[in-house]
Every structure is written in structure tokens, then in C-alpha cells.
């Protein structure tokens, strides 16, 4: 399942600095703006998908966890909750996704969608658990709805990852 070293090197070259700056900011802007145009898109979590994308592409757990941390803290800053909740969750998502990508073939589109699906559920569960345990928030996690949204995010992840690959 592991990729050849040459292939990994090609992928790293693709990771241009401008993409590293632009994609997280764009994902956050999309996340806070698009649901205003249509509430149907409120299920979409572009910051999470971008975190997973960079983790899969980087395969460097330390870099991935810092990218996740930065995106998460920015999300926290734009929410009404104390800063750190999204940060912790996305740090873990980045770290685990990058660690897993070292052992799995993440070039396959189906595998990438699977990652997006699993990490969406992981993200939602961990966010709710953190909110309930640390902040005393009321947890209203609907499993069926979460699975449906995970599938939809995975479906969006496929073209999004391809688009980011081409940039």
C-alpha cells in the first residue's frame, strides 16, 4: 500500500506556499459565508476538508498538526465559544490523518473520500465530547444526520482534493 519515494517527492513539490496560505483562509471564508446564500450548504465543513487534504499530502505529522491547529484556532476566533475547542480537534485530525497517510495509499480517490468521511465523524464526535466535558455544552449529536453529512462532505472532498491537486 505504501507509495514509492519518488511519488511522494512529486507530491511535496506540489505543495506551494501560496496554496498553504490561500486554501485555509478560503475554506474559512466559504464556511462562514456560503450558508448565508443557501442554508443547504451548512453541512459543508471546508476547513476540515482542507485540514485533511494537507495532512494527506504532507504526510508530516508535525506540519499537519500545526496546519490543523491554525485553522481550528481561526475557526474558534470566529465562533462564540472559548478559543481552543476547534483548535484541539483539528490538531488531532491533522496529526492522525498525516500519521495514517504514511501507511496507506492516499492517491486513490475512494480512499481520500473514505478519509474525509471518517474524519468528519471523528471531528463531530470529538468536538461534541470536548464541548460537553470541558465547556458544559448541551450535546445534540444526531448519528443519522452526522453520517449523512459525512457522506456529503466525502462527496464534496473528491472534486475539492482534485482541484487542490491541480493548483
Amino acid at each position: 500500500m505504501a507509495l514509492p519515494v519518488a511519488r511522494r517527492s512529486d507530491l511535496r513539490q506540489k505543495l506551494r506556499p501560496f496554496l498553504l496560505m490561500l486554501a485555509p483562509v478560503a475554506s474559512i471564508v466559504l464556511h462562514i459565508k456560503v450558508p448565508l446564500f443557501s442554508d443547504y450548504f451548512s453541512f459543508l465543513d471546508p476547513p476540515l476538508l482542507v485540514t485533511v487534504y494537507f495532512a494527506l499530502l504532507h504526510r508530516d505529522a508535525v506540519q499537519a498538526l500545526f496546519i490543523g491547529c491554525a485553522i481550528g484556532l481561526a475557526q474558534d476566533a470566529l465562533s462564540s465559544n472559548p478559543i481552543g475547542q476547534f483548535g484541539i480537534v483539528k490538531t488531532l485530525v491533522g496529526y492522525i490523518a498525516a500519521s495514517a497517510s504514511q501507511h496507506l495509499n492516499v492517491e486513490n480517490m475512494v480512499a481520500r473520500m473514505g478519509f474525509a468521511f471518517v474524519f468528519y465523524l471523528f471531528h463531530q464526535a470529538l468536538y461534541a465530547a470536548l464541548g460537553a466535558s470541558l465547556l458544559g455544552q448541551q450535546v445534540s449529536l444526531n448519528p443519522a444526520e452526522a453520517i449523512l453529512f459525512a457522506i456529503m462532505n466525502a462527496a464534496v472532498a473528491a472534486p475539492l482534493f482534485q482541484l487542490l491537486d491541480r493548483l
Binding site: 474559512i28 462562514i32 476547513p47 470566529l78 465562533s79 462564540s80 465559544n81
Partner: peptide, 12 residues
Amino acid sequence: TGRGSDSSKVVF
């Protein structure tokens, strides 16, 4: 101009 980044009902 935008809504909050979490599930709470917050806008900017």
C-alpha cells in the same frame, strides 16, 4: 457579512 464558524446561531 457572515455567520459564525460553529453550529451556534451567530452572525457578523
